[in-house]
């Protein structure tokens, strides 16, 4: 296990696992999570047009949580962050918490835009223009 103390910055060389069992176990976990995600994706496809807002958004949230779980396994096991000391884990994870604000604020903003547009800035009742045509900005390009 004394394979490497590569620089004087490192006090204690990490002890590396001798077997590959953990790697293959993680591969299995990632594959199973992906298959569950796909199954939920097909469920959404199958129920398309039948399900209302709540079941669709719930399924999508479950898929997002499973994705975060996959991210945890990749970072913790494959990138070995889980094997580092606490200082190292914190210097990576804490800045990433900004994403919580980032996602909430901007999706909220997008949704607010939609509401303002559909209500003419709150001057009328919310109506979704299903038939509205999005004419592409480059009409001249359409001739090619």
């Amino acid at each position: 296990m004394s394979s490497q103390v590569s620089s004087p910055e490192i006090t204690h060389a990490p002890e590396h696992a001798s077997g590959t069992g953990r790697i293959w176990k993680t591969f299995t976990v990632l594959s199973v999570l992906t298959i569950i995600e796909l199954a939920l994706g097909y469920l959404l496809y199958w129920k398309h047009g039948e399900w209302g807002y709540t079941p669709v958004i719930t399924t999508k949230l479950v898929i997002a949580v499973l994705t975060l779980l996959k991210a945890y396994y990749i970072v913790s096991i494959f990138m070995h962050l889980g094997d580092e000391i606490r200082n190292m884990i914190m210097t990576i994870i804490v800045p990433l918490l900004l994403f919580v604000w980032f996602i909430v604020a901007f999706l909220w903003d997008g949704n607010s835009w939609k509401t303002l547009r559909n209500t003419d800035g709150g001057s009328r009742a919310n109506q979704t223009e299903q038939h509205q045509q999005h004419v592409p900005a480059v009409e001249k390009d359409a001739k090619k």
Binding site: L107, N111, W113, T128, H134
Partner: peptide, 18 residues
């Protein structure tokens, strides 16, 4: 990705990936 999400949330219709 968040910018993509913002735009997607701001329009009434988006392409169905399936």
């Amino acid at each position: 990705l968040i910018s993509y999400g913002t735009i997607r949330f701001s329009v009434n219709h988006w392409a169905d990936p399936n």
